[in-house]
Structure formats: structure tokens, C-alpha cells
């Protein structure tokens, strides 16, 4: 029995155009860990997540979710996923949306009803229960997305930019949920641009640059290395080169 929730080994993805999106990503996230997956735009974070969820087939390498192939329904029964751009069925009410996802996950009627109420309460959408998704603001849609990810009480949660589109109050709520998930022993793998949030919540972070993991380590190591915070490390690894590339392009 594997003790790792997520195992990515030498993952390579080359698109049809010949563009190498991932060039040998290797990562292991143990069960019960909150892992922050950081990197600049276009570094390959979303591609890694897509491979992790079985949306795309890797050109080479392997991906395992709780020791299982992520393309199998058994693996996905243990997974909760919040996409980067959360959009759901406009003409469903949020409780109908969650009931639909619950049925897909195989939750029984009675259990489903109580789970829908519980997750709506958790994300602060209880009062919007009867509202159509199309009438939701961006932040409310993001929270509805969070609710569907948590609905079936999965062991592993993959969040792609969970703070995107949220106001400070919404960010705080997501952060609290992640902390609570860690306390419950869940594994959380999330990509983000928010370095301070990542530093605050994560046990470990990995920094992706041009399709490769260029740094991976515990957040405690960051505080103790005498170099300063995560932002400083991030900028040292990526910032200068990125900005010089950007300046060269702009010139």
C-alpha cells in the first residue's frame, strides 16, 4: 500500500505542436500534507494538474494517485478537484448542482442531502441554496466549486489557483478550509501565484520553471535558511530571468 497520495515520476508532456510543456517533473506528496505548487505563468502547473487528473496522457513518465492510475474512476473517487476557471451549469441551482455531482460520486439520497447542506455551510453558501448558478458572482462560483470538490469527502484535494477571483474575506475562508482539511488528515495539492498564502498554509512547496521542478522543500526550511521569505527565493529562482526575458521581449 502506497503511503504517498501523489506520485509523479519523470512526467513529460509534449503538445502536438512540438512544444515541451513538461520536461521530467518528479514529485511525491505524502498523505496528509498541504503542498503548494508554484511557478510563473506558462511554467506548466495546469498541465501537471491535467496529467494528474488524467485529462491528458503524458508523453512519458508516470502519475499515481493513492497508488492508482488517475484515469480510473476508483482513483477519482478519492479526489476532489477545483478547476482554475470555475464555471458550472448556469441553469442549475447550487443545491441541484451539488446533488448532481453527489449522484455521480455514488452518494446515497439521505447522505447526499446532509452532505450538500454541510458543504454549503462550510463555504458560506447556505443562504444562496435556491439561487441559479448564473446569478452567482465570480467569488460565489469559486465557492460553489470548492463545495463540489469537498462534497464526497475525498482523501486528496487538487486546487488549481483556489484564491483566484476571491476577495480578502473569500481568501481567508479558503485558507481556513485548507487548514481544516490538513487537520482532518487530508492531502491538499494546490497551484498558486500567492506566495505569502502558500508560505502560510503549506507544509512544503515546489517551484516549477519552464516545465521542470527547480526547487522543492519544506516551508520551515525557507524560514530557517537565512535568505528570507518564499517570495525572495521565488524571485531568485525565476524573477530575474523572467523579467529579463520580458524586458528583452518588450524591447
Amino acid at each position: 500500500m502506497s503511503t504517498a497520495a501523489i506520485e509523479i515520476s519523470d512526467l513529460r508532456v509534449t503538445y502536438g505542436t512540438g512544444q515541451e510543456a513538461l520536461r521530467g517533473v518528479t514529485l511525491t506528496v505524502p498523505k496528509g500534507e498541504v503542498f503548494g505548487f508554484l511557478g510563473p505563468n506558462g511554467a506548466g502547473k495546469t498541465t501537471t494538474i491535467k496529467a494528474l487528473l488524467g485529462f491528458i496522457s503524458p508523453t512519458a513518465g508516470t502519475v499515481r494517485l493513492c497508488g492508482l492510475d488517475p484515469r480510473t474512476p476508483d482513483a477519482r473517487a478519492r479526489l476532489g478537484y477545483l478547476p482554475e476557471v470555475a464555471r458550472y451549469y448556469d441553469y442549475l441551482r447550487v443545491d441541484e448542482l451539488l446533488t448532481f455531482y453527489g449522484e455521480i460520486c455514488g452518494l446515497r439520497r439521505q447522505e447526499l442531502r446532509s452532505r450538500v447542506d454541510a458543504v454549503l455551510g462550510l463555504v458560506g453558501l447556505s443562504s444562496a441554496k435556491g439561487k441559479l448558478i448564473r446569478d452567482f458572482s465570480k467569488g460565489m462560483q469559486q465557492r460553489a466549486g470548492l463545495a463540489q470538490a469537498l462534497l464526497h469527502d475525498p482523501d486528496v484535494l487538487v486546487f488549481d489557483e483556489p484564491m483566484s477571483g476571491l476577495d480578502p474575506l473569500g481568501r481567508r475562508r479558503v485558507r481556513d478550509i485548507m487548514v481544516r482539511l490538513r487537520e482532518e488528515g487530508k492531502t491538499v495539492f494546490f497551484s498558486s501565484h500567492e506566495l505569502s498564502e502558500a508560505e502560510m498554509i503549506c507544509d512544503r512547496v515546489g517551484i516549477l520553471k519552464c516545465g521542470e521542478v527547480c526547487w522543492c522543500g519544506p516551508t520551515t526550511e525557507i524560514a530557517g535558511d537565512g535568505k528570507g521569505n518564499l517570495e525572495r527565493i521565488f524571485l531568485e529562482l525565476i524573477g530575474d530571468e523572467e523579467s529579463s526575458t520580458w524586458e528583452a521581449t518588450a524591447a
Binding site: L53, G54, F55, P73, R76, P83, Y88, Y89, G145, H152
Partner: peptide, 11 residues
Amino acid sequence: RTIYPLLAKPV
């Protein structure tokens, strides 16, 4: 993009 949360479920 509703396909992503749907296919992330055990379906």
C-alpha cells in the same frame, strides 16, 4: 469548461 469538474469525478 464544465467538463473538468465532471470528469474529475468517478465517471
